[in-house]
Design a protein around this nucleic acid. Structure first.
Length: 832
RNA sequence: GCUCCAGUGGCGGAAUCGGUAGACGCGUUGGACUUAAAAUCCAAUCGGGUGCAAACUCGGUGCCAGUUCAAGUCUGGCCUGGAGCACCA
């Protein structure tokens, strides 16, 4: 064993061996219980960044820990490899996106191997390869058959920079999630997945996800946005042609229905033209044109002054017989509810603002119990007692909600209604580098799905990537023109491709059966491996990927392809990697290149450091000094072992014997047992790797201290040291994967350290031989006394009371009572 | 506005059940080794007070209350920061 630690040399050596022997291959069949550890797979952008390093290291340590603890662990990796950056790169160099992607995957694969990750590379999945996207297309067809996919013309989010539409989930603050440019509304015919059909179960099943953080669950719940309310239908009294009989509205405040003074429809409301009088037509048209021009950001800004114009027509309130005017205003959203709102200015802040601007009347119907002369300066939106509400007067508004709706139901102008904020998932993209949507448009038969036996619909190669203003795929001569599978006549292929989030919504299933060429996956294999026991990834997917994947799992279950409800049993959302307090990013210039760290310090240092300073869920501040510190620590570990090489014998069978445990009352043996227990518990409880690493340090410090007191080691000491080092190596093996393997090998350990079972501890040895009794007076620490471990409660009390310090302090006082916490503490309550 | 999370030394953070606040590390300071440096090792490091010193003592986990023999931890009310949602009727 070399005296000095040369990580680069060691790491290269072992990586080669692991690679050649396929060391981390996972068999499907095993006597052991299964464990599925998964990181969110990367987009092959070119190089790994520190976020990747953190993500994959966390999952790798978990996978290795579980393996050592007797599980058959599935720990796969793949590539989320469709998407716009490849296409943009291709456009820039007029090259094939596939070449760019392949090169990136090759480079990043090399980096993953340099990090020493224990992947089963035989299960690698690459979403842009036909053997994968064939099944993405196949699954699309299954959902289509189930009626969960449809095409419709709708107001959609258009990103001009990316030249494509976006899903709702991909619009952040009115901007594109990818390129940050402002998103426009466009009316286009697009493909949607009916995720709303699963809104309720997606919400309800969040309760089953006990292994998910509350933050992610509430984010999803908010996004789904379930609300309970009513639909009321208001008869139109003066529709110009008499062809619109009523306007339905959705409200969560049926209790305020007696306070309606006007009604608002969205500018895009379907019947708006029929509800406009000829005199108002011009103003309404202008208003609508103006609304169309506005960006989402402008339109949705809450601090904007509300605007609107009257339509000239009126509705009747069936509860009161009152007639009130119809307006259009862009604060009503066509996509939500019915696209029309009943306005109660006295009890809704938005209606209040609008009514004040246009001098619309107010009618108070809910009385503020603390301030009966309410609604003079602002809307009153809290609970209260109904007034001016006919038969409902005097009732609590919370109770009236139900009764008022019931009346509407009974009299045929209303119904109870549950409403969701979630919209259907827009999945078509006007881009080349994605899975082609397997559909053709026949001149005669209309929309025809591609027959399954014709899959995959391959991406064409005869494409001009330099084209501007349309998808490159449309330039292919061979792609568009095709034959209708039904009638054999001329047909045109769909040129839209699928959102990459469709590809990533099922990849975790494919790992269970990655090489299956006849099916997307074998049902038994998927049922065996899934759900994922531990999923690890960034919080940025809290809604997008995680919601889509949950939906996919449920939809595929309903297609009979699998038998479970939720894909990810436990979710760990790791924090960001920061540098100098800001997220690492190229634009800020505060990135740290993993390659440089590997080169200068080795992967083990990188792994150790990225786990050391913060718990996984919290943000992690990268510091050069911290890396240096971890490197020094590994050197310290190496030195400890290399200078003791002759004193250590790993294959000493005596280490595992009962007699060794019994005869060893050595403090170091106890320290090791305490470390094993602590480290095992810290990993098991929420993967607290930062404290695991502090315990590595404590153990190493303890071994050094122990040795400093023993200039000469006798045979028993050597056995104790061997036990300590062996345990240290195994405990550190999930993190410092190369160093521990090398040391294990050099010290004559059998096989690979990564095949060793985890250390066990003896409960009796995993505690100090004596305890420090804390003595408090009135809750304040006054004395600390070393006592034997086995001392009983009564005796502890006596010891405490007889301590000279305590005697002096309690002298002349009345002892009211004495509380004894076994093996820990005595609190003496005194008076006087 | 609503929802969730967090707040502990100079810094990252630690503290199963309510039971010694500040583990472990970074940084800083002093020292040893060295011609010198690097590396390594040793010591100190929350604040105030008493003391030459060992030591002793008081205060302290965002703020204010409360529960308790005992609160970083539990309860209520605030403050600050972060994240998500948001003219969603």
């Amino acid at each position: 064993m070399k005296e000095n630690y040369f990580p680069q040399e060691i790491e290269k050596k072992w990586q080669k061996i692991w690679d050649e022997t396929n060391a981390f291959k996972t068999p499907d069949e095993s006597d052991k219980p299964k464990y599925y550890a998964l990181s969110m797979f990367p987009y092959p952008s070119g190089k790994l960044h520190m976020g990747h390093v953190r993500n994959y290291t966390i999952t790798d340590v978990i996978a290795r820990f579980k393996k050592a603890n007797g599980f058959n662990v599935l720990h796969p990796i793949g590539w989320d490899s469709f998407g716009l950056p490849a296409e943009n790169a291709a456009m820039k160099h007029n090259a094939d996106p596939e070449t760019w992607t392949d090169e990136n995957i090759a480079y990043m694969t090399k980096q993953l191997k340099m990090l020493g990750l224990s992947y089963d590379w035989d299960r690698e999945v690459t979403t842009c390869k036909p053997d994968y996207y064939k099944w993405t297309q196949w699954l699309f067809l299954q959902l289509y058959k189930k009626g969960l996919v449809y095409k419709k013309e709708a107001a959609v989010n258009w990103c001009d920079e990316c030249g494509t539409v976006l899903a709702n989930e991909q619009v952040i603050d009115g901007k594109c999630w990818r390129c940050d440019s402002v998103v426009e509304k466009k009316y286009l015919s697009q493909w949607f997945i009916k995720i709303t059909e699963y809104a309720d179960v997606l919400l309800e099943d969040l309760d089953k996800l006990t292994g998910w953080g509350e933050n992610v669950k509430t984010m999803q719940a908010n996004w789904i946005g379930k609300s309970h309310g009513a639909i009321f239908k208001f008869p139109v009294v003066d529709s110009p042609n008499g062809d619109v009989k009523e306007v339905p509205v959705y409200t969560t405040r049926p209790d305020t229905v007696f306070g309606i003074t006007y009604l608002v429809v969205a500018p895009e409301y379907g019947d708006i033209e029929k509800l406009t009088t000829p005199e108002n037509k011009q103003a309404v048209e202008e208003y609508r044109a103006n609304a169309r021009k506005m960006t989402e950001i402008e339109r949705l800004s809450t601090d904007r002054v509300k605007t609107g114009v009257p339509l000239g027509t009126h509705c009747k309130n069936p509860f009161t017989g009152e007639i009130f005017p119809l307006w259009t205003a862009d604060y009503a959203l066509v996509e939500y509810g019915t696209g029309a709102v009943m306005a109660v200015p006295t009890h809704d802040t938005r209606d209040w603002d609008f009514a004040h601007k246009y001098n619309l009347p107010l009618k108070v119907v809910i009385q503020n119990p603390e301030n009966p002369s309410n609604c003079e300066n602002e809307a009153y939106t809290d609970e209260g007692i109904l007034i001016n509400s006919g038969e409902f007067n005097g009732m609590k508004n919370t109770e009236a909600k139900k009764l008022i709706t019931q009346k509407a139901v009974d009299e045929g102008f209303g119904e109870f209604k549950t409403q969701y904020r979630l919209r259907d998932w827009l999945i078509s993209r006007q881009r080349y580098w994605g899975a082609p949507i397997p559909v053709v448009y026949c001149d005669k038969c209309g929309i025809v799905p591609v027959p399954e036996e014709q899959l995959p619909v391959m991406l064409p190669k005869d494409v001009d990537f330099k084209v501007v203003g349309k998808s490159p795929i449309t330039t292919s001569q061979t792609f568009k023109d095709t034959v209708c599978p039904v009638c054999g006549g001329h047909a045109t292929r769909e040129t839209d491709t699928m959102d990459t989030f469709v590809c990533s919504s099922w990849y975790y299933l494919r790992y269970a059966d990655a090489k299956n060429s006849g099916k997307c996956f074998d049902k038994d294999k998927v049922n065996h491996w899934l759900p994922v026991d531990q999923y690890v990834g960034g919080i940025e997917h809290a809604i997008l990927h995680l919601l889509y994947s949950r939906f996919f799992t449920k939809a595929l279950r309903d297609c009979g392809l699998l038998d479970f409800d939720e894909p990810f049993k436990n979710l760990l959302t790791q924090g960001m990697v920061l540098k100098d307090g800001a997220k690492m990013s190229k634009s800020k210039g505060n990135t740290v290149d993993p390659d440089e760290i590997f080169e200068n310090y080795g992967a083990d240092t990188a792994r150790l450091f990225i786990l050391s300073d913060s718990p996984p869920a919290r943000d992690f501040d990268w510091s050069d000094a911290g890396v240096e510190g971890c490197y020094k620590f590994l050197n310290r570990v190496w030195r400890l072992i290399s200078t003791n090489q002759d004193n250590i014998s790993l294959c000493d069978s005596g280490l595992d014997s009962e007699s060794f445990k019994d005869k060893s009352n050595d403090d170091l043996v106890r320290t090791v047992h305490i470390a094993i227990k602590g480290i095992t518990n810290d990993i098991s409880n929420d993967f607290q790797f930062n404290t695991v690493i502090s315990k590595y340090r404590e153990l190493v410090n303890a071994i050094y201290d122990w040795q400093a007191k023993k200039p000469q080691l006798n045979d028993e000491d050597k056995q104790v040291l061997s036990f300590a080092i062996k345990s240290l190596l195994i405990l550190m093996s999930p993190v410092a994967v190369h160093l521990t393997e090398e040391a294990w090998h050099e010290l004559g350990g059998a096989g690979s350290i990564h095949e060793q079972p985890w250390c066990e501890w003896d409960e009796n040895l995993a505690k100090a031989s004596s305890i420090t009794l804390v003595v408090q007076i009135n809750g304040k620490v006054k004395d600390k006394i070393e006592v034997d471990e086995g001392v009983g409660d009564e005796e502890l009390k006596t010891i405490a009371l007889e301590s000279p310090k305590i005697k002096a302090l309690t002298d002349g006082m009345t002892i009211v009572k004495t509380i004894v916490v076994p093996k820990k503490l005595v609190n003496i309550v005194v008076k006087g």
